[in-house]
Design a protein around this nucleic acid. Structure first.
Length: 946
RNA sequence: GCCUCGGUGGCGGAAUUGGUAGACGCGCCGGAUUCAAAAUCCGGUUCUUUCGGGAGUGUGGGUUCGAUUCCCACCCGAGGUACCA
């Protein structure tokens, strides 16, 4: 009987679905194990062979843990809001929900055919109102919270209000907007309700603020930095300007330090931790206040080198700095305004990309040096970014290359404040070998000493303090898009109001068009039913609002008209839905709470999270932020959601190249191409056989341009060139898992993906190699052809147990590629031993089952079992079967292996030396020389020196 | 520029704390089976060689009886990041 993988795989996939073999329970006496793979965005292109790599690894681990007796949670779902579906909707008018549904069904078919042990009863989709109800709910919790720096956690906004009632905000230590005014308890009680709301908004963890964004008027939307190329939109090439817009933001900066500290507590890859660390960008230094001469104003700067303050010969403000217009003198007004305008036209990325051009303008104003009281000229320059620090720097040209270049360019003095350092060519930025000079009370001090001294002096003057600055900025949370979560927000008198939980979800409205409105509002502005009736708590027609406007009343008066208010028109960004989905899987159908305490009390957190490294500073940072918030508010028991994380590497494609002779319809084989002048052309990789030979008939049918082409062959074959590059439709090198499954089966594909190499590494795909693992499966199948209850031989047991040991170690260390080799060795050995013993072949089936679950189930059934193999206990390794009595020692001379000698393992060092030295081959090697030294490591090696 | 990861046969890769470099698989070569092919099975396959051997894990040094493994300097590739004050 042959190995009929198509029949076997279909049979067991049906069996698992029907019996809900992988359904996890939320209460169990077993230990829990939560294995999670990042859920996909269901794109129209479907899966290629690179996508399942991480899923296969996660599935092997999940199945292994099941064999080890754990209650395993291994869910899957879809991150189903997103741009491609919306883009398609704009082009075709098809509702993104329909596109998304179609794509999900396709994904599900592809995933099912790979035999994953997912608990599909827990599937979530971020675009499902039942799911995004809870995304909206978390948003509301963030809105109703503030960050108390004293307790170092998020608290209910009510506790902040009671502090304001008692003592105003003068003493409270909270994360809040920079421009928050100070007030006392009496002020607070005198504020109007609207003023109170405005002030609270400055403290809430999600808040409305005017944010500078990249606005593309032609597209009617905000663009992310990477959607802009050379100052114009990547799509369409439309101009982009920077514009202030009122947007929802997330106060992630409140968590900067905890996000940094938490990295030490989790087992994540170092490069990923490093990129989060860099992204958060903590720097220690001081804030220094410079008074502006002849103005009632001061400029605060942040510097990491307060020790160099006596070297400050000018200051530079970002052109957007709000003091610029105030302090600029009449004479400089025109020049400054021209410069500011020119800068506004450039995107921030544009400015950052152009590092070489030095530009700036003198404002005409001077600041006063805190210590010398000397005037310091104030310049503006676009090398200072408004969004970092305070948007102003004290320029120390002798110690900072950018300041140095600027000073050189504009002939500003460069005082040297370093002892024995030449600064005629470049600035001296070394902190470690610094001795400060020409600096009054700092003379002779090191960087460290000078820094603490100057901070103390600044504090005495009330003009500065030690400060820690973060590069991390609050995250803009509004998108001018249709296909995202609606905010559960309506506006009364311009102030945002949250919709109560019992009325959630607030579902996306239907719209005629998915583009921005003619008046520049987001797509939701096209909805005709998008107003909130606050009395009846439901979405109503915009007509209810319209009446108000038609009456000549302003929108703000709408309260008097039936309590109907406008709803928020923005939607949430892509990362909203993925920031807590791992918790929702624990109790995905709960309609009363986000998840029950029982469910999260049992599952706690993710034990193993597998996904791509491209999410390092997006999803993985935002999720950690949300988790810490949920932890602070008592909603989650752990403040890190994933203990261990693994990044699977990319699988690259192996493109196939034919060589067209220039200006001819002829193609030349790889080996002969140097005789002609040729252009390389990529062709579909499915036309190539394992020996790099081209299927010429197939090519002629593939695309019309090859129909009448001639081919110059070598040895009767056309050999293609190969190039390793990213798997992409445009290179025709995408390999679809469906065709692999059809030809070789899912078990072969699973094994081969693991066999390619270490999980974390990027590696090229080459379909040809799959025959190796496929014939391994055939050999495995054959091994179970004749089964009996014969006692296994010592040899059989040795093979089995060394396999158990190696495979278990490999899985625990995520070294799945070496397990596959181990299986091959095992099957090769058992085949040559003609092993038929069930007591060997039963445990072997279990060992193989995490990797190749379909064949394992089938073999298990043939072994006479009626239950699934999935929950069988993993075989126990027993050392005793591996104990050897002899060892084949390598005998080296000066570190080079010369011959081998079998000796008993219990032979002592001296005895070994004696036997080896007496050996004929040793004498032959030494040729009469006397060895200087003989190294004997029992059980390992013998090395003779001399 | 900075940070991180990597560099081993024709190819993917293995070598667990410094101890037999190249496991396992692909490809290739030879053979068996077959009318023939596919499939299957067996043998070989780092390079070089005067068949004794010699060289060899990106390059050059070092530590060691012994280095793919540890240390120093450099080269190359991939990814991340960048006027961050």
């Amino acid at each position: 009987m042959n190995y009929n993988f198509r029949e076997i795989e279909a049979k067991w996939q049906k069996f698992w679905a029907k019996n809900e073999t992988f359904k996890a329970t939320n209460n169990s006496d077993k230990l829990k194990f939560y294995a999670l793979s990042m859920f996909p965005y269901p794109s129209g292109a479907g899966l290629h062979v690179g996508h399942p790599l991480g899923y296969i690894a996660g599935d092997i681990y999940a199945r292994f843990k099941r064999h080890k007796g754990f209650n395993v949670l291994h869910p899957m779902g879809y991150d189903s809001f997103g741009l491609p579906a919306e883009q398609y909707a704009i082009q075709t008018g098809q509702h993104p929900a329909i596109t998304t549904e179609t794509n999900i069904n396709r994904y599900r078919e592809q995933l099912d055919q790979l035999g994953f042990s997912f608990d599909w009863s827990r599937e979530v989709r971020t675009s499902d109102p039942k799911y995004y109800k809870w995304t909206q709910w978390v948003f509301i919790q963030l809105f109703n919270s503030w960050y108390n720096k004293a307790s170092d956690k998020a608290e209910d906004i009510a506790t902040l209000i009671s502090i304001f009632d008692k003592e105003g905000n003068t003493h409270v230590e909270a994360s809040c907007d920079e421009d928050t005014p100070l007030f006392n308890a009496k002020d607070w009680s005198g504020f109007s309700e609207k003023t109170k709301q405005e002030i609270l908004l400055k403290y809430r963890l999600t808040y409305l603020a005017d944010t500078e964004v990249n606005w593309c008027p032609a597209l009617g939307t905000v663009l992310a930095n990477d959607e802009i190329v050379n100052g114009v939109s990547e799509r369409g090439g439309h101009p982009v300007i920077r514009k202030k817009m009122t947007q929802w933001s997330m106060r992630i900066t409140a968590y900067a330090q905890r996000l940094l500290d938490g990295l030490d507590t989790i087992d994540w890859p170092q490069p990923l931790k490093d990129s989060q660390t860099n992204w958060i960008g903590r720097s220690e230094g001081a804030s220094v206040t410079f008074k502006v001469k002849d103005h009632d104003a001061s400029i605060e700067v942040f510097t990491t080198r307060p020790d160099t303050i006596f070297g400050a010969s000018f200051m530079t403000l970002a052109p957007e700095h709000n003091l610029v217009s105030r302090i600029t003198t009449k004479e400089q007004k025109e020049a400054v305004e021209t410069y500011v305008e020119a800068t506004a036209k450039r995107s921030e990325r544009d400015r950052m990309a152009d590092v070489k051009t030095i530009s700036g303008v003198f404002t005409g104003a001077y600041a006063e040096h805190p210590f010398t009281k000397e005037p310091v000229p104030i310049w503006i320059g676009d090398y200072v970014l408004a969004s970092y620090g305070t948007g102003a720097v004290m320029a120390v040209p002798c110690g900072d290359q950018r300041d140095y270049d600027f000073a050189k360019h504009y002939n500003i003095p460069i005082p040297n404040i370093f002892e024995g350092v030449d600064i005629s060519e470049e600035a001296f930025a070394d902190k470690t070998n610094t001795i400060i000079a020409n600096s009054d009370f700092l003379n002779g001090l090191s960087y460290k000493e000078a820094t603490s001294k100057v901070i103390a002096e600044l504090e005495k003057l009330g003009q500065g303090e030690g400060k820690i600055n973060y590069r991390l900025r609050d995250a803009v949370f509004s998108r001018q898009r249709y296909w995202g979560e609606p905010f559960p927000v309506y506006y009364v008198d311009g102030m945002p109001q949250m919709i109560d939980l019992e009325h959630l979800p607030l579902e996306l409205p239907e719209v005629e068009k998915y583009l921005p409105t003619e008046t520049g509002e987001p797509p939701l502005g096209n909805a005709t039913h998008w107003a909130w009736d606050a009395k009846n708590n439901k979405v109503v027609s915009n007509e209810m609002l319209k009446q108000v406007r038609d009456d000549g009343h302003s929108e703000l008066d709408s309260e008097s008209y039936e309590g109907v208010y406008p709803l928020e028109l923005n939607t949430m960004p892509g990362w909203a839905g993925s920031s807590q989905y791992f918790n929702r899987y624990m109790d995905p159908h709960n309609d009363e709470t986000i998840y029950s305490e029982e469910a999260i009390g049992y599952w706690q957190d993710v034990d193993l999270y597998i996904g791509g490294s491209e999410h390092a500073t997006g999803h993985l940072l935002y999720s950690r932020f949300w988790q810490k918030f949920l932890f602070d508010r008592g909603i989650a028991p752990k403040d890190e959601f994933a203990r261990k994380l693994i990044n699977q590497g990319m699988i690259t494609g192996t493109s196939a190249i034919v060589f067209r002779i220039k200006n001819e319809d002829r193609y030349v084989s790889l080996g002969l191409k140097d005789k002609y002048s040729t252009d390389p052309l990529r062709v579909d990789v499915s036309l190539i056989n394992p020996s790099d030979e081209l299927n010429i008939d197939g090519l002629k049918k593939w695309q019309p341009e090859f129909k009448n082409a001639d081919f110059i062959l070598e040895d009767g074959k056309y050999i293609v060139g190969r190039e390793i590059e990213k798997m992409s439709k445009r290179w025709f090198n995408v390999v679809n898992p469906d065709t692999i499954c059809e030809e070789y089966g899912a078990d072969s594909l699973r094994l081969y993906e693991m066999f390619l190499g270490p999980l974390e590494q990027s590696k090229p795909w080459n379909t040809a190699g799959i025959t190796g693992v496929h014939s391994f499966l055939k050999k495995l199948w054959k091994l179970y052809g004749a089964l009996n209850d014969i006692e296994p031989s010592a040899e059989n047991l040795k093979t089995l147990h060394k396999t158990i040991k190696k495979v278990e170690e490999d899985i625990e260390s995520f070294s799945f590629n070496t397990s596959v080799s181990t299986f091959m060795i095992c099957v090769n050995e058992l085949t040559s031993q003609k092993c038929t013993s069930k007591s060997i072949l039963e445990p072997l089936a279990i060992l193989v089952s995490p990797y190749a679950p379909h064949i394992a189930e089938e073999l298990w059934e043939r072994l006479g079992h009626s239950e699934s193999i999935a929950n069988e206990a993993f075989p126990e390794f027993e050392e005793k079967y591996l104990v050897e009595s002899t060892k084949e020692y390598p005998i080296s001379f000066n570190g080079k292996l010369r011959f081998k000698l079998e000796l008993p393992l219990d032979m002592g060092k001296d005895e070994i030396e004696a036997v080896v030295m007496a050996h004929d081959k040793t004498k032959e090697q030494l040729q009469g020389r006397k060895p200087k030294k003989v190294i004997v490591v029992p059980g390992k090696i013998i090395n003779i020196v001399g």
